[in-house]
Design a protein around this nucleic acid. Structure first.
Length: 433
RNA sequence: GGGGGAAUACCAAAGCGGCCAACUGGGACGGACUGUAAAUCCGUUGUCUUUCGACUUCACAGGUUCGAAUCCUGUUUCCCCCA
């Protein structure tokens, strides 16, 4: 149809492994494919985006993407994952999470019912919840041998001598439950392809095996490499935790910053995986980037694209403004020109303290102000404050405090705020009332 | 059971009677440089304190001494060697 899906993924470096014959299948007819996501939270984080992007390209190639929420499988836990069983989610939480995730997925995939390749979101809890144990072992279990199941790496690892903990029967059964999802979708949606991270290969092939044995059908698997960062740390995490798509969990500003701060080495991977830009556009950007790496053209382009898609143009504008205040060479004047709403949203989450005008008036010098008047949020003691000022590490309203004994004569931003900065990255907002 | 050794700040590791709040390295935090990077260089790093200084630290409890992280006694923990 429009694009060659496999070729598209290939140049983007998103194919780790695939089953032969998939290309022929895709060129033959409109095909459905699914990616599974554990609904363990009411928001996706950027680690989930790899799977979502696969579906996005799949839909762009004219095929039908299905997002499968693992309401049932997520209750069990994949033995290959963190080798730890998950907590069971109750149904109410599950539905809340489902709604939150669907809202986010809609920003990537087209759910418009009038298109014949419109995206669909399903939850395996809906077909697994009424499945009886006897029904499952009779209809599904008997088609797959334990020998077959034991041969999977995820299982072997847990049975080997090095493994410190045993594997429960529930975990062992996981691949059957996941495999059954594929079978179910094959029958219900004519879904012939499952995609996922390379660690899912074994689980996916259990599904294709079931389809082959029970339906005499042919189904396929495509996996992507797990994202690695050049410094070896885990993708999608920062010191402050996961990068979520939900603006309440990760502000658009932080979201933008995450992409902007990606290292040069990682960028060529990231941009291919997460950007919808064409090959020509990306290669042109890379060329531009390599000519002037310090401008970080690639990081900016991807950060902008991602922020607009996940949040909005307004959110991006705000993030840009916040970034220029925090990291640019902005002056007290610029700071003062920012309206109250913007100021507060930029410094949302920053430690704050409220003092009175009288307290401010009573302050004798900068050291006292930073240690005592502000109730210790900036510095715990005057000695500490003094040392840091002498080391040149303190700014108020973007002006460096030069002398620990300087008199306090700060301009109030918007008539009520004082912005204190310790080092480059630690901000404190003092509210004067 | 017998013999030997070790315990020092966030970590590692010097110090073996006064010049020790304790060398040095790492880490952390600041500064300069830079691309909100890497590398490099500089500063701070027991607490409080404007300088001076004061106070609490070198496993724990006592002791010797004008003075102890350093010497003595006991206690605890760890390591090694021989049974």
């Amino acid at each position: 149809m429009q694009k060659d899906f496999i070729a598209e993924l290939q140049w983007r470096g998103m194919i780790h492994d695939m089953m032969p014959g998939i290309e022929k299948q895709l060129s033959k007819e409109l095909t459905s494919a699914y990616v599974g996501i554990d609904p363990t939270a009411d928001s996706l984080h950027i680690g989930h985006l790899v799977g979502i992007m696969m579906l996005k390209h799949f839909q762009d190639a004219g095929h039908k993407p299905i997002v499968l929420l693992g309401g049932a499988t997520g209750m069990i836990g994949d033995p290959s994952g963190k080798s730890k069983e998950r907590n069971l989610l109750d149904e109410e939480t599950l539905r809340v999470n489902e709604a939150g995730i669907k809202k986010q997925v809609m920003k990537f995939l087209d759910f418009d019912a009038s298109a014949d390749n419109n995206a669909k979101l399903v939850n395996n809890y809906d077909w697994m919840k009424d499945f009886s144990f006897l029904g499952f072992i009779r209809d599904v279990g008997k088609h797959i041998t334990v020998n077959y199941m034991m041969a999977k790496d995820s299982v072997k690892k847990r049975l080997s001598a090095e493994s410190s903990e045993g594997m429960s029967f529930t975990e062992f059964t996981y691949q059957l439950v996941q495999g059954y999802d594929f079978l179910h979708l094959y029958k219900a949606e004519n879904c012939k392809l499952q995609m996922g991270g390379s660690d899912q290969w074994g689980n996916i092939t259990t599904g294709t095996e079931m389809i082959r044995k029970m339906e005499q059908g042919e189904a396929f698997a495509v996996t992507t490499p797990l994202i690695k960062k050049s410094d070896g740390t885990k993708f999608g995490k920062t010191e402050s935790g996961n990068i979520w798509l939900d603006p309440k969990k990760t502000s658009p500003y932080k979201f933008y910053q995450f992409w902007l701060n990606a290292s040069d080495e990682d960028m060529s991977n990231f941009v291919r995986i997460f950007s919808t830009k064409s090959k020509d556009e990306i290669e042109a950007l890379e060329k531009e980037h390599n000519q002037a790496p310090h401008l970080r053209v690639l990081q900016k382009a991807l950060a902008e694209e991602m922020t607009v898609r996940v949040h909005s143009q307004e959110a991006l504008d705000m993030a840009l403004k916040a970034s220029s205040i925090l990291f640019g060479k902005s002056t007290t004047e610029e700071l003062a020109s920012i309206d109250e709403d913007t100021l507060l949203s930029v410094f949302e989450g920053v430690p704050q303290v409220t003092i009175t005008k009288d307290e401010l008036a009573a302050v004798d010098n900068a050291t006292t102000f930073l240690a005592e008047t502000t109730q210790g949020i900036v510095f715990k003691s005057k000695g500490e404050a003094r040392k840091m000022i002498q080391g040149g590490g303190v700014s108020v309203n973007k002006n460096k405090v030069e002398d620990p004994n300087a008199e306090v004569d700060f301009q109030l931003l918007q008539d009520k705020y004082i912005l204190v900065q310790r080092g480059k990255k630690n901000y404190y907002l003092v509210i004067v009332e």
